[in-house]
Design a protein around this nucleic acid. Structure first.
Lengths: 222, 222
DNA sequence: CAATTGATGTAAGAGCCATTCACATGAGTT
DNA sequence: AACTCATGTGAATGGCTCTTACATCAATTG
């Protein structure tokens, strides 16, 4: 019987060996479980089986840990979005829609990351790494908007890709924040967040001059 | 004009006389100043000049105080949106745009309310009063969507008003959350949040079949 | 006009947390 | 084998939430 350390894994000497990673993982679990505010430095240390002072060897303070999580979250977000976009295969529109769904899926499946990224109230400035990670994720959205803008019928001038990207991001983020969080039900909806986003984007694209195959207005016809 | 208690000093009998209001106001100030997480029950009590235990005579716990603030926030939000909408005067579209601006203005000018309403992570269920207040505010947006939907050209079937309301709300909320918070600069934008929202809504309305006077696509026309 | 009482405040304290500092440990280096 | 530095510990400080027992006072009531 190991009388030497019970909490986490097997026995461990005076040094943990991988504490930084263990703390990040513990924090992710705790945030996912009890919200971004419910997470405590001390409890993360406890899960990792170290004293409350140990984390300070790896993070200046609690905020720096959360920043690290947010940064990782943005990197993973970038990967997820880029994978969904998949260079616009098989075609720009279906890839675009896939990316929208990926946005909502990420918000739902990674509440800890999402909270750290968007709801922790961290100052973006003064943290270049975090800002850069955030911008890399947005760059994916922007690249897709670039493709869309290039395809837009030149009827009344091409829309600026950046603006399109910001609109899409805003609507996705709004839907994710308002309707796609919290396991059960935050607010009741007559349709899934995914369908809501798809319909909204379809209408928006029509407004940009794209012909959409199906009426986006919700008529049951097809 | 204080004939009696002042926020900090001044004589005050054993009883405060208006502690509940004083606490709400103090909390509002503190949240505005230091974010929703930076607010503490103890400090609010201190500002009001009472002991740390006094607030518990008026609020079950910290969360209940924040809930109260969120509820008041929704009521005020409803007023602001309704005033901006002004029954659709002088015409539906300009009133609609005015309401969008009011949304962003509220997010910017009332960060404490906005935080409590949308970023505090309070459970909506289990708090009927809060939920009701939230729904009353949304009802304003929904009513405007109702008018819009009724005006939509019947080309491909009328869009469901509820869906339109949700889209508008989501885009407004997304822009407010991402770009219209924090005094200085959260993320840099090539245009103001207001203009971004206006352009987005214009494009969206075009997608619903409305003819928009000006090209919404960002051409520098006029 | 007391006496009572219920609402509102206070004092003290338990238990939690973040953070710091002096000190301990031990892995890698010399 | 001695050294050293990153990493972890213990103990302490100060703050926070919330509870419990008690204090004060305004209003009611006999």
């Amino acid at each position: 019987m190991s009388w030497r350390k019970q909490s986490g894994r097997s026995e461990r000497g005076y040094h943990h060996g991988n504490l930084k990673e263990a703390l990040l993982q513990a924090a992710l679990d705790l945030i996912a479980e009890k919200g971004p505010g419910g997470f405590t430095f001390a409890e993360a240390a406890r899960s990792a089986g170290v004293s409350p002072a140990a984390p300070y060897r790896h993070f200046r303070d609690r905020d720096e840990l959360i920043s690290s999580i947010a940064e990782r979250g943005f990197l993973q977000f970038e990967k997820v979005l880029a994978a969904a976009w998949d260079e616009g295969r098989p075609d720009t529109f279906s890839a675009f829609e896939r990316m929208g769904r990926a946005y909502l899926t990420f918000a739902r499946d990674e509440p800890a990351f999402y909270s750290a990224m968007f709801e922790s109230g961290l100052p973006l400035d003064g943290n270049p790494a975090l800002l850069a990670a955030s911008e890399r994720a947005f760059a994916v959205i922007r690249a897709t908007a670039e493709r869309l803008a290039a395809l837009a019928p030149p009827g009344a001038g091409r829309p600026p890709a950046l603006m399109v990207a910001l609109h899409i991001w805003s609507m996705s983020h709004g839907i994710a924040s308002l309707f796609a969080r919290g396991d059960a039900a935050r607010r009741k909806l007559p349709m899934s967040p995914e369908d809501l986003l798809e319909a909204g984007v379809l209408i928006y694209l029509r407004g940009l001059g794209f012909a959409t195959e199906r009426p986006p207005a919700g008529t049951p016809g097809e």
